[in-house]
Design a protein around this nucleic acid. Structure first.
Lengths: 196, 196
DNA sequence: CTCATCATGTAAGGAGTTACATGATTGG
DNA sequence: CCAATCATGTAACTCCTTACATGATGAG
């Protein structure tokens, strides 16, 4: 159900086509929630049928077309309802920690390679999220600026404060994963000194 | 593909029935990787067809039956191959941080409720993982003890060290989420002082 | 005229969830 | 005899992934 709410969250700022939404999910919002085009287009159609969004069919040039979606009253209600409802947490399913728990089955080199890749992976995520934070500070995030434009002054600080808060949480998470994997590398050195 | 490897990891210690595996996934291993019975039984059948495990059909009493699975040579190879192969990381899809990024759309009460539930959720996870760590220290984790029994002495320390490492990572994660949400509660107080 | 970008999808399949369905054994 | 536990599944559905498929427009 979260894809739908992610779509609503973005469309609430202003009308957008499936293609533009897809770009958002490949960049800014994509750092919090990823979705490919093959999921976005059908979901928009479903949401249209359920009355959460409406499309304005536009023509581009001679034969080109695009569907500009905007949120309906029911869509706004559905989003706010979701915001107020308890979030459903999924059961843990973490391949990296699963593997870590059985790392004694791997060779020292494989264990190190796994941990190095884990660090690389999370350094990448960290860079993305840190980058988003920088964009917020520098007022260079187009989506957020568009959002701030349509927000009355007293609430503007709130909007960017929550964005910052969300990305700070993700940055913390990435740092934690990196520190953990670095401790893991030391552990590999220690337990593989003797034996094997 | 990770369910299959989680199953192999457990079965490598010793033969087990689908029912017993299901119990493991509801307790100890379930703290790292969850799987319901409706997923475990079919997966075991598939793995049997692919030659990764073999079942010994047993009878219980008059008409009762159970299938005791053990890992084949091919299964051992497949597991070690997975341990040596790069882990596939999924794209981020985090409902809590998604919601946090749009928390200005919620009322102060809804925002607080969300963060309180987030703290509760991760306190629960923290307790579970901390509990597993305690069991490792106290040598009261039956799966691990069974594992240590079949492990030659020089490698025993390695086995529990990696288990500890895995759960410590999860404990760190839980603490991070709790701290983040606590900062969030302060933020709600601050940005909702004026306005609304 | 050609390439990047705009634009919208379908199809097949894997992974996971929830609900349903059935029956045997063992201990009190 | 009754309840807890042992034991094994199927069915329908959602969500997501990967690959395929097509075509228009605008800038150089």
């Amino acid at each position: 159900m979260s894809l739908r709410n992610a779509l609503l969250a973005i469309l609430r700022v202003g009308p957008m086509s499936g293609y533009e939404l897809q770009k958002q999910f490949a960049q800014s919002v994509g750092h919090v929630w990823h979705a490919p085009d093959s999921q976005i287009y059908p979901e928009l159609r479903k949401m249209e049928i359920e009355g959460l969004v409406e499309a304005e069919e536009q023509t581009r040039g001679e034969r080109g077309r695009r569907r500009l979606y905007h949120v309906t009253e029911a869509g706004h209600r559905a989003f706010l309802e979701w915001m107020g409802a308890p979030l459903e947490y999924q059961r843990t399913r973490d391949p990296a920690h699963l593997r870590a728990a059985y790392l004694e089955s791997a060779s020292a080199e494989d264990a190190r390679a796994f941990l190095h890749r884990h660090i690389e992976q999370w350094r990448g995520e960290l860079a993305q999220w840190q980058g988003e934070l920088d964009h917020i500070e520098a007022h260079s995030n187009p989506m957020l600026e568009r959002r701030l434009e349509v927000t009355p002054e007293p609430e503007r600080e709130r909007v960017s404060a929550y964005k910052r808060f969300a990305y700070e949480g993700l940055v913390d998470r990435a740092r934690g994963e990196i520190e953990w994997a670095e401790r893991g590398l030391k552990l590999v050195d220690r337990v593989h000194e003797v034996g094997e």
